[in-house]
């Protein structure tokens, strides 16, 4: 099938590149992973934790973190939860459909090309594992090469809402400590039941010398950071991924402000020392 893209030069940062959905997989009832290839063969270079603006043409544009690993030579990977008009359109895409992609934007987890001898603890709530997936892939590979240990702690509402189950099994096989818990067990669930914070105390990481990457609902991140701090983790060693209404990714539209930050530019990944005050300010 013929495809055409025409751009005036220079291409505006607000003009997306066109990508075709080359594969699609359902993670949970409302979460879909799309694999995307650029129509003009371009490869997007990104760091784990960054996001792209994805356009469902005619519906609109939305910020979605890359869920693939920078070292994965395959198609660009995004995992989307169906929560609004644009994400619904994206989740409804079929293989062969064309969407717009602009990016990558924002800060990253600091994992890409930055191995450490210390432990790295990844804490995810629900779909929050998606922006962390690439980082875990990189960390697991680095651990095999002798870098610090990796711990992946995941909380989900119900067992069937746990994303990337295959990946979790792979990571565990590769030597990553994987602990999962759910809020509500289902028949047949023999694992942990409780808040993700209950996984922290016995996970076995070195609280004094570790970095922690958290992504999930803001309340979950606040409670997790507090629990980590009680275990002796320095707040400056904690990073969180924050979310606001991002409409341009470029620092131009003003919607994603959180106090001094423009989250599309200064986030989404923010050190907890800075984030904690902002997360506690009401209606900011």
């Amino acid at each position: 099938m013929a495809s055409a893209t025409e751009f005036s030069v220079p291409r505006s940062a607000l003009t997306p590149a066109l990508y075709r959905v080359v594969a699609r997989g359902r993670e949970t009832a409302d979460v879909v992973t799309l694999w995307l290839e650029s129509l003009d063969g371009e490869r997007l270079s990104f760091r784990s934790g960054q996001f792209n603006m994805l356009s469902a043409l005619g519906v609109g544009e939305v910020a979605v973190s890359v869920s693939g690993s920078p070292s994965d030579p395959g198609p660009l990977r995004h995992t989307v939860r169906d929560v609004g008009a644009v994400t619904h359109a994206l989740c409804s895409c079929d293989v062969g459909d064309v969407i717009g992609v602009r990016g990558p934007f924002g800060t990253d987890w600091g994992v890409t090309g930055n191995a450490t001898p210390h432990d790295t603890v990844v804490v995810a709530g629900g779909i929050g594992l998606a922006p962390l997936r690439g980082a875990v892939e990189e960390l697991a590979a680095a651990q095999r090469e002798g870098a610090g240990r990796v711990f992946v702690l995941v909380g989900a509402r119900e067992p069937d809402q746990m994303v990337f189950l295959d990946d979790l099994a792979e990571w565990e096989k590769a030597g990553v400590v994987v602990l999962i818990t759910v809020d509500r067990p289902a028949p047949g669930w023999s694992g942990r039941v409780g808040l993700v914070t209950t996984l922290l105390a016995n996970a076995g990481f070195d609280a004094r010398h570790c970095r922690v990457l958290i992504c999930g609902p803001e309340i979950m991140m606040r409670f997790t950071a507090r629990a980590l701090n009680e275990l002796g983790v320095d707040l400056a060693s904690i990073w969180v991924s924050l979310e606001r209404n991002m409409q341009c990714g470029l620092g131009w539209c003003g919607h994603c402000q959180l106090g001094p930050l423009l989250l599309c530019r200064d986030g989404p990944v923010v050190n907890y020392l800075e984030a904690s005050a902002l997360m506690n300010e009401r209606e900011r």
Partner: peptide, 18 residues
Amino acid sequence: ELWRARVGDGHVELVEIP
């Protein structure tokens, strides 16, 4: 108005509006 796209079946033509 930034750009215009004509969306066909698996075929998209996207042009910046000068």
